[in-house]
Write a protein that binds this DNA or RNA. Structure first.
Length: 477
RNA sequence: GGCGGCUUGGCCAAGUGGUAAGGCGACGGCCUGCAAAGCCGUUAUUCUCCAGUUCAAAUCUGGAAGCCGCCUCCA
């Protein structure tokens, strides 16, 4: 089965055929680095990371570009507010972004260009647009893209420029030929980051960065351009206009857009004050839980963040790790040469527009089947059953490298959870061990009321005891 | 106002023409001194509603209702 992707440009799934055989050029809009990243940023990055991994798995030589917007009004505003140099701010948030993405198991893209390091290319790009009559500069130093000079404007977002012109929400700017014309270059105020240009000292607009940088690394025409749904208009529409106005060839073949992370079924927004930051989530849940959550819905659908949904995902991840641990205990070994039905089904799911939600369902099915086989053989499988279980184990391991989850050794996964609980709750394990020992003595003497008393006491502190064949262990509720 | 999307069991969710994956929860069982955990089993004749196309529809068409997003910075 070949890869099918949903292309925003045509509004449906189609077969993925790269422009150059065996190679894929992919550009994804990265963050504007002026603030802490939220869980919505994480979704976009994790989704495209998974897509990047899958394309690589399929054997494509992928050049993956994800930019940093490090010159922007919001950065300048922040700089003025806190009295720090823009470069200091952007460096800080780039570091933070990298740390968080590393924690989430996100692979570094092939290139991570910064706008400020490509001003030369941006200026050249604007110059080409002006020369072709697609852009114009006005008194005061602004340079605008002329919407009317590009006939395809609106083809990605399905908008008609004439309809939009009537829209009351677009502020009319006397200097623009058409109210929809957008900024390519804006004049700088004293003290702001700026670069010298024939048409005035200033800085680039947001949209032109991506056209210039994608051209630099991927050329006039490339395979995949991604980003959040909210970027379709105007950002990506404007990128198409800029790039196609200059080169006169199709800019991007496949446009891929991810849905939002909602809070209580609404988009996160400043006005609602419902942002959930990545670092906040990381302080509560393991990175794999977050990653699994982000991949548990189809990438184009909205996904609702809540404590409940995170708890559910966390339990599901425990289930998978418990199965892996059980396989290891039963002596099932990884044999990388084998690929089974699970891998096959998983591949089909990923080839169907990167359906990671379905893929996770398939894994749970295998977990269930595998547990049943282990039950039937009293955890001492051999022959065909051992082979089937080896297939499961192998396939899950290979899949873990695509989804970026359940990569840990099961025992370290469970140990991590416990250690984290102890740190968070400031629990001293030796005290717990002492109580467990007292309870064990009571049980030996058949003094069950005392034993239960100790257990209840610990339970009140969110500590649950588990009596196993090799003694009592404890964990957090 | 223009454009787009969504509505599947108690909750989350996959499923784009062939007769409802999966997770959480709940209930029953195994295990246990009793529990807990783990495992197993059961849990939607039905997919917001109405009409239509079809041998066949959650899936296609038309209409209604509700919800969400974009049109301004936004992943």
């Amino acid at each position: 089965m070949s890869l099918k992707v949903y292309n925003t440009l045509i509004g449906k799934k189609e077969e993925f055929i790269p422009i150059k055989e065996g190679k894929v050029g992919m550009y994804v809009c990265g963050p504007t680095v002026y603030d802490t990243s939220h869980i919505g940023h994480a979704r976009s990055v994790v989704v495209f990371d998974t897509i990047f991994r899958w394309l690589t798995q399929l054997g494509y030589d992928v050049t993956y570009v994800r930019n940093f917007t490090d010159v922007d009004d919001k950065i300048i505003k922040k700089s003025n507010e806190i009295g720090q140099d823009c470069a200091v701010i952007t460096e800080k948030y780039i570091d933070e972004f990298h740390n968080e993405m590393d924690a989430l198991n996100v692979l570094r893209p092939s290139v991570e260009p910064k706008a400020t390091e490509h001003i030369r290319h941006i200026i050249d790009f604007i110059q080409m647009l002006i020369e072709r009559g697609k852009a114009y500069h006005v008194d005061g130093g602004d340079v605008y893209f002329s919407i009317d000079s590009f006939k395809g404007y609106g083809k990605l977002s399905g908008r008609n420029p004439d309809d939009m012109r009537a829209g009351a929400r677009i502020a009319v700017d006397e200097k623009k030929n058409n109210p929809l014309d957008f900024t390519l270059w804006k004049p700088a105020k004293p003290g702001e980051p700026s670069w010298e240009r024939p048409w005035g000292e200033g800085r680039p607009g947001w949209h032109i960065e991506c056209s210039a940088m994608s051209y630099e690394y991927l050329g006039e025409s490339f395979d995949i351009h991604g980003g959040g749904k909210d970027l379709i208009f105007p950002h990506h529409e404007n990128e198409i206009a800029q790039s196609e106005a200059v080169f006169d060839v199709q800019f991007v073949k496949y446009w891929i857009h991810n849905g939002f992370v909602d809070i209580n079924n609404e988009k996160m927004s400043k006005s609602l004050g419902n942002f959930t930051m990545i670092k906040e989530v990381l302080s509560t849940y393991s990175p794999e839980v977050i990653r699994m959550f982000l991949l548990s819905n189809h990438y184009r659908s909205p996904i609702d963040y809540s404590e409940d949904s995170m708890r559910e995902i966390s339990l599901g991840l425990d289930r998978i790790y418990a199965f892996l641990e059980r396989l290891e205990t039963a002596g099932v070994k990884v044999d990388n040469s084998l690929k089974g039905d699970l891998w096959n089904d998983f591949s089909n799911a990923m080839n169907d527009d990167f359906n990671s939600a379905k893929a996770l369902g398939l894994i749970f099915e295998s977990v269930k089947k595998g547990n049943r086989l282990l039950d039937e053989t009293n955890d001492t499988p051999d022959g065909n059953i051992l082979e089937t279980l080896t297939f499961f184990y192998n396939d899950i391991k290979v899949i873990s490298n695509i989804l970026g989850i359940f990569l840990l050794d099961p025992s370290s996964y469970f140990k991590f959870k416990k250690d984290k609980g102890m740190t968070d709750k400031a629990i001293d394990s030796s005290e717990i061990e002492k109580l467990i020992q007292q309870r064990a003595d009571a049980r030996k003497n058949k003094d069950f009321s005392k034993a239960d008393e100790i257990r209840d006491h610990l339970q009140a502190r969110n500590i649950v005891l588990e009596d196993g064949s090799e003694g009592t262990t404890w964990r957090f509720k």
